[in-house]
């Protein structure tokens, strides 16, 4: 049972005014060492689903297995990269990258070696002693990525890691993530609302519907493994983009109407 297995995952939130069903029965799997993206409109529960897989949010019913182990809470074998800037401003780049290893009790020498390798992998060599305040938003997300990769987790979950960045930086960092993945071949589940980003990065895309969120479409991305940002202009890319967009469009409209009439 390698990879990520979702078995009929439901998540609902109770509040005084009623119940919100955020995730409504998702049964899917991410094959080991593959890159899968979830796309969906805002509020479709894709981040909630990721939080459940990360062990940060309990599922109301259903279960998640990662590499044969049931997820019951956070686990260092599950690496998470957040949307928000999670670099610690009082630590320089090296110390930030070492943070997760330090919490795990990794020895100093091993920490330094792994941090150096992770920093090199994300292209931050030469910035080891810089503090986050002196780095751009994109570079800080690289630091967060290096911190996650340094622990060498079995799976990496990314929750819209580039959402707060400008379009150029996004595409560039997306290509970087793809390059890094081709080197490490970790199992990656990537959440985004950007269709191009999802196609550029993934081998498979899950399209999620607006509330209650469930997977309405699974699209295999049959683009060559060796790809860079130039693939965006290829005909196949456009076909895939249209395919995802058609699935999404109805859902986005539904979410939009829901907000309008609310």
């Amino acid at each position: 049972m390698e990879g990520i297995h979702l078995n009929d995952v439901h998540v609902q939130f109770d509040h005084p005014s009623g119940i919100t069903i955020a995730v409504d029965g998702v049964t899917q799997q991410v094959p080991p060492r593959s890159f899968v993206s979830i796309v969906g409109p805002s509020g479709c529960g894709k981040s909630t689903l990721l939080a459940v897989i990360a062990g940060l949010q309990p599922a109301t019913s259903g279960s998640v297995d990662i590499n044969g182990r049931r997820v019951t809470g956070p686990d260092r074998d599950i690496g998470v990269v957040f949307q928000e800037d999670s670099t610690l401003p009082w630590r320089n780049v090296r110390e930030n990258v070492e943070f997760a290893m330090q919490m795990a009790g990794v020895s100093k020498g091993e920490r330094a070696a792994k941090a150096a390798a992770a920093i090199e992998l994300v292209g931050l060599k030469g910035f080891e002693n810089s503090y986050p305040a002196t780095l751009s938003g994109g570079m800080r997300q690289r630091v967060a990525l290096a911190r996650t990769l340094a622990l060498q987790p079995g799976v990496v979950l990314m929750d819209e890691p580039f959402a707060a960045l400008d379009q150029q930086t996004r595409i560039f960092l997306g290509a970087e993530v793809r390059r890094i993945w081709e080197q490490t071949h970790q199992t990656v589940l990537f959440v985004t609302h950007d269709i191009s980003e999802a196609i550029l990065l993934s081998q498979q895309i899950w399209v999620m519907s607006y509330r209650p969120g469930h997977v309405i479409d699974v699209i295999d991305i049959d683009l060559p493994d060796e790809r860079d940002a130039s693939i965006v202009s290829s005909p196949r890319f456009n076909e895939l983009h249209n395919r995802v967009w058609t699935s999404l469009q109805k859902e986005s409209m539904r979410g939009f109407q829901d907000v309008e009439t609310a």
Partner: peptide
């Protein structure tokens, strides 16, 4: 920032 606590939880800090 809440994300610091989330980070602490994911790396299983005591």
């Amino acid at each position: 920032p809440p994300v610091y606590w989330k980070l602490g939880r994911t790396v299983q800090a005591g």
